[in-house]
């Protein structure tokens, strides 16, 4: 099959209008996967995986042009999980898309697993680049966006940032670069769950006014409910109409979203559920 036919086939696939109820159901299943993975692993980042779940599902199932059967397709849209600790959600999504068998999810963080504690492109099909040391993903996304422009590809580049992560100075170096080069094929999404390891972002190191900051750096900004899949999809579409500047979608989220006992609790940033919490989570998520 030549490249052109390839592309047409993919276009058909991704141009199908996503069924919001279907995506919502996928998000529920991804959350169940995350709970199962972390419970089995006995460690991992729960809160930030659950806050990012709807964003990842909307992006991978409703927006991005990429294909598990052809992971090296040169014209694919690219995704960088700059907040690398959201790996469990990322892995659950990739597995459901067919990048690797879902059974692998149960080996998360174990010796010899293809699923490292933080994303490692050398181990996991579908992962573009190692991330986990915060603050570095946006620069990488910029490079990808520049390469796509030089290659004349229509591919779009997505990067998911944590809100605590924007305390890293390199993020603002990259913010300047993206605006300077007018990277309108780049969309960054901020998982604004308002919590970091030591507490509320407002207490640890305030990042507000975050929208104004990105605007001042030359970015087009949007704010959405990061758990509302139709809103997220609309935002991705709107970003395609933005010319000459990169887009930042500030997605307001709840850390630990989907399980009442985890929601808004800083202790679940990097803690796996205990057996009682695990049962409670399954019950609430209908597992």
């Amino acid at each position: 099959m030549d490249i052109l036919n390839h592309n047409e086939e993919y276009e058909k696939e991704i141009n199908a209008i996503p069924d919001h109820h279907h995506l919502k159901e996928i998000a529920r299943q991804v959350r169940l996967d995350i709970i199962e993975m972390l419970f089995r692993a006995g460690s991992g980042h729960l809160g930030g995986s659950l806050s990012a779940t709807d964003i990842l599902v909307a992006l991978f199932f409703g927006e991005m042009r990429a294909h598990a059967g052809d992971p090296c397709w040169i014209d694919r849209d690219r995704f960088i999980l700059s907040k690398g600790h959201g790996a469990p959600a990322y892995y659950a999504v990739l597995a459901r898309l067919g990048y690797f068998p879902r059974e692998e999810l149960l080996s998360l963080r174990q010796f010899g697993s293809i699923l490292q504690g933080h994303p490692d492109s050398g181990c996991t099909p579908g992962v573009e680049i190692p991330t986990g040391s915060l603050g570095q993903g946006l620069s990488i996304a910029n490079g990808l966006a520049l390469a796509a422009r030089l290659n004349g590809h229509g591919s779009r580049i997505y990067a998911l940032l944590g809100d605590g992560e924007v305390q890293e100075g390199q993020i603002w170096e990259a913010a300047m670069t993206a605006a300077h080069y007018g990277l309108d094929n780049l969309v960054a999404i901020l998982d604004r769950n308002r919590l970091q390891i030591d507490g509320h972002t407002a207490e640890v190191m305030s990042i507000e006014p975050i929208n104004d900051k990105w605007k001042a750096f030359g970015w087009h900004t949007l704010e959405v409910d990061g758990h509302d899949i139709p809103q997220l999809l609309e935002a991705f579409t709107a970003c395609k109409g933005v010319k000459g500047q990169p887009s930042m979608i500030i997605a307001h989220t709840v850390k630990g979203k989907g399980v009442s006992i985890f929601e808004g609790q800083k202790k679940y940033h990097g803690t796996a559920p205990n057996p009682e919490e695990y049962q409670q989570a399954l019950k609430e998520l209908g597992g």
Binding site: N142, L146, T177
Partner: peptide, 9 residues
């Protein structure tokens, strides 16, 4: 980081 992204591309 930008160089890394260009290499990936």
């Amino acid at each position: 980081g930008t160089a890394a992204g260009l290499a990936l591309g």
